[in-house]
């Protein structure tokens, strides 16, 4: 057997695992379809049920359309919910003995988690894009330019990737595939609803607003709004560049904390 330089070997093993994880989505397209149905439902319900009422409270930069305000937030919601897939996938592999097989092979130790999180960010990119297409069909238009839209997608992907590592830690800690289905929502629900995803935070009570204004989902959503709607969509005193930097700092901070924790949990599997 040939010996390869270790970073090269790690990259190659990771790509083998990425391919394996993505093939599952290709062979079972229902997975992607149903993963898209839920966010599209959110999109339609919020836009048509609450849109009329909330529309009056949103900044004019949204062009008078709630859908324009909603889409940047939903991209982040999908990124957060989609990352739960990482926890589910890992617990399934654990319970089926696949992780044992990987751990008994002379492969790069980092490849299992890296392969899982990279595959999931690609998958979530597909779901986010599908939802964006539906958004377009029902009237979403960016108010800046295509680069702003691309930048917004990049922010959503960065968030999705960082959240995948949070979910990896949850999956490796909870271990049971059924229990993890509920566990992944525990951090995601409060973050998504107590945020600027659906409504501007100005109308929230001050204690809640203090939380909502200083948590990653709001930071990500604001960054995307700045990129696709312009500075007028941001809270007073915010700039697009400033909010994008804050968002990226959150993504980097989450990775700095959760990558080592997830790797440690992986090493401690018995």
């Amino acid at each position: 057997m040939t010996t390869m330089a270790s970073p090269l070997r790690a990259a190659r093993d990771t790509s083998v695992i990425v391919r394996r994880n993505l093939l599952r989505n290709v062979r079972l397209p229902q997975l992607l379809v149903f993963a898209t149905v839920q966010p599209v439902m959110f999109l339609l319900l919020f836009n048509y049920v609450f849109g009329g009422a909330i529309g009056r409270a949103i900044p004019p930069a949204a062009g008078g359309e709630y859908i324009n305000w909603l889409i940047p937030g939903l991209l982040i919601q999908v990124a957060a919910f989609g990352a739960g897939q990482t926890a589910l996938g890992l617990t399934e592999d654990l319970s089926k003995g696949v992780i044992d097989r990987f751990r008994s092979l002379p492969m790069a130790r980092s490849a299992v988690l890296a392969g899982r999180t990279f595959a999931d960010v690609i998958r979530n990119g597909a779901v986010i894009t599908l939802m964006l297409v539906v958004g377009f069909l029902i009237g979403f238009r960016w108010q800046t330019n295509i680069l702003g839209m691309v930048g917004g997608l990049a922010v959503a992907m960065a968030f999705s990737f960082s959240m995948s590592w949070v979910m990896a830690l949850i999956g490796l800690t909870v271990k049971n595939p059924e229990a993890v289905q509920s566990a992944v929502f525990i951090p995601v629900f409060p973050l998504v609803f107590a945020s600027s995803v659906f409504v501007p935070t100005e109308t929230m009570p001050s204690w809640l607003r203090a939380f909502a204004d200083n948590q990653p989902v709001t930071a990500m959503t604001n960054a995307i709004r700045g990129l696709v709607l312009g500075e007028g969509a941001l809270p007073v005193g915010h700039t697009v560049a400033g909010d994008v930097l804050t968002a990226l700092a959150w993504a980097a901070g989450i990775l700095v904390v959760f990558v080592p924790l997830a790797v440690r949990a992986y090493r401690r599997i018995t």
Partner: peptide, 21 residues
């Protein structure tokens, strides 16, 4: 059986072979 349901038999074995280096 630590094999992937949605991969073919060949893909499963090849993957492990690749991971052996």
């Amino acid at each position: 059986a630590a094999v992937d349901d949605y991969l073919t038999g060949r893909e499963n074995v090849e993957m492990v072979g690749r991971l052996y280096g």
